[in-house]
């Protein structure tokens, strides 16, 4: 008796009926009402066997443990720094998690991170009250000097990174820029000024065309035309970042 009312990759709006019957299971972005499965947000339908779920297309960043984010220092606290996360909540970087150096009692914290500095950090904990703890200890976590910051839609971050980092590696190869993508939709780009602009334009293009299939090849051609450089075929898998 169970019946699916939508196909995979269709757009669902809140309140839309996705399936009827108890043979299907509601997952992320859906809820059950009687024997029906209803969408409770705007998203792309994804059906995995019996499980019906939605992939978000819009919305602000929701902090999760383990995410690498880019944020700026907005305040110096008694024993740490307040970092803006591009979500509804700000994070606290404790002194212990900031640096391996010894920080003397009463030291001026702005000599490590001053207000306005940008940092790459990892979320270590998110409480039920959405207090976010972050750390700067770990590979690739550091203060950012120079370059430029752009904001993108958080839900498009996986597309910009690509499978095993293929997309971002391609932009890095083509433009020679250093690029760091935070899960919170903040991207840092550093390189030759003109190349920085090319990289930013490419990232914006991917964000805009994220639904296009075969996007990696199209972006490759796009990058080749704007930089005038021949890129290697995407045979080998690049490691992420």
């Amino acid at each position: 008796m169970s019946e699916l009312l939508v196909k995979s990759k269709e757009i669902a709006v809140p309140g839309e009926e996705l399936a009827i019957g108890m043979d299907f299971l509601p997952s992320y972005g859906t809820y059950r009402d009687g024997d029906k499965i209803i969408a409770n947000k705007l998203g792309l339908v994804h059906i995995e066997g019996k499980v019906v779920k939605l992939i978000s297309l819009s919305g602000r960043y929701v902090p999760k443990r383990g995410d690498t984010i880019i944020g700026d220092v907005t305040d110096l606290l008694m024993s740490g720094w307040r970092i803006e996360t591009n979500s509804a909540y700000s994070a606290v970087l404790g002194m212990k998690d900031a640096t391996s150096e010894y920080i003397a009692r009463g030291a001026d914290l702005s000599q490590y991170f001053a207000i306005g500095d940008w940092v790459v950090a990892k979320i270590t904990n998110v409480t039920s009250q959405k207090l976010i703890d972050i750390t700067m200890r770990g590979p690739g976590l550091r203060k950012l000097n120079g370059g430029r910051i752009i904001y993108i839609n958080t839900n498009k971050v996986p597309r910009i990174i690509g499978k095993a980092g293929s997309m971002v590696s391609m932009i890095k190869d083509a433009t020679g820029c250093k690029i760091i993508i935070g899960q919170n939709g903040v991207v840092w780009v550093q390189g030759e000024p003109e190349m920085e602009i090319h990289a930013v334009e490419t990232i914006k293009k991917i964000e805009r065309d994220s639904h296009v299939s075969g996007l990696t090849d199209k972006i490759k051609i796009y990058l080749e035309t704007i930089t005038g450089k021949k890129l290697e075929a995407q045979t080998q898998k690049y490691p992420q970042k």
Binding site: P14, G15, Y31, I38, L42, R60, N155
Partner: peptide, 11 residues
């Protein structure tokens, strides 16, 4: 509100 990606049971 739906465009903002918020959780809502219907429009």
């Amino acid at each position: 509100l739906a465009d903002a990606g918020l959780v809502m049971k219907d429009l």
